[in-house]
Design a protein around this nucleic acid. Sequence first.
DNA 1: AGCTGAATCGTACAGTTGTCCAATAACATC
DNA 2: GATGTTATTGGACAACTGTACGATTCAGCT
Lengths: 197, 197
Amino acid sequence: MATRKSERTRQRIVESANRLFYHQGFHNTSFTDVVVASGVPRGNIYYYFKSKDEILHAAIDYRLERIRAMLDGWSGTYRTPVERLYRFVALLDDTAEALTQFGCPMGTLNAELGKDDIELQEHAAQLFELFEDWLTDQFAELGYAGRAHELAIRVMAIGQGISMMTHVHHDTALLVRERQRLKRWVDQLAEGDDSCL
Amino acid sequence: MATRKSERTRQRIVESANRLFYHQGFHNTSFTDVVVASGVPRGNIYYYFKSKDEILHAAIDYRLERIRAMLDGWSGTYRTPVERLYRFVALLDDTAEALTQFGCPMGTLNAELGKDDIELQEHAAQLFELFEDWLTDQFAELGYAGRAHELAIRVMAIGQGISMMTHVHHDTALLVRERQRLKRWVDQLAEGDDSCL
DNA sequence: AGCTGAATCGTACAGTTGTCCAATAACATC
DNA sequence: GATGTTATTGGACAACTGTACGATTCAGCT
């Protein structure tokens, strides 16, 4: 297949660019950076993407797909909504080092794009919506049908807050501490204790 | 006085640059942008600041001073820690439109700088510390001496989370809703109800 | 008025940016 | 093997970047 190898080249570009955008930020990542990191020459990159913005769009699509797969995986692996919420909270631990060093990949990207580029930001906002929809389902299944979406937003906000503070202070202990608190909050909700809503 | 006018020029540069850095981001703001926005010619800017980084340092100092003044003002105007905490929470409303459009000035700046530039980011982190120290004082005075700092961090995290979600979704209603919840949380603490800690 | 240093201004510079293109290679299909 | 499509390559491009500097103007002092 001819598409096989070309697909791999495209993928190599997207993955390299995606990593760079996360580690250095979009505006602070030059085209040459992508060339060096991916090992794909300039011209060939422009064969696949006709602008730097398009590369970012592709990187966001790549992230969207991975997140979708991850959430589907969780939905398959864990049967109860509480277990699934636990899994979500544990995400903070999985990515602790990266979170401390570079911040939340979704949050920092949206923060950067939200400043100027509306089109790119709206695309990046879908990353959030993916999580929010999934969380909404879990809360609905938990019995909070009417407030499910509101709770989903709240959980995301807490996660973003923790990520930001951890990143700002380069303090992983902070992350661990606040993550435990978030888990306890989920516990309360699971027990039907909505006094803290 | 000779220093008078020169001080005003310097200030004009700093204020223009500060606004641009907030609205467009640091890396996405060019030197020429600062020249145009401030109306001060290139050469003259370089008389005051010998690099773009130095302008940002000055802009951060400018913000630090303003925040310090604001917090001191609050400490003077409001006598009880609860009133002061209320005032802090109300900050989310004061800056609602800007928050929706550009995100939290401190958060987005730190998110951007944290990626690459350690020196600048550590300076920007002082913006957070200013708030945290002030909040710590309020919580200590409220009777949560041992956990005052932890609570301060938590309030900041909640604020950052709300700001981020509002910015991502361009949804001011979200801001209002979550702000009310934050206020209720403060109410609980004020009543000595620490069940939600 | 004359001097001095601070402040202002425009321009020039070398390096980097994102973008484009024409030549070439590899491939698939007949 | 011939042909048309897909993929690859490196270099060239104009525009813009942050930085530097010499020439000029201004303010304060004797």
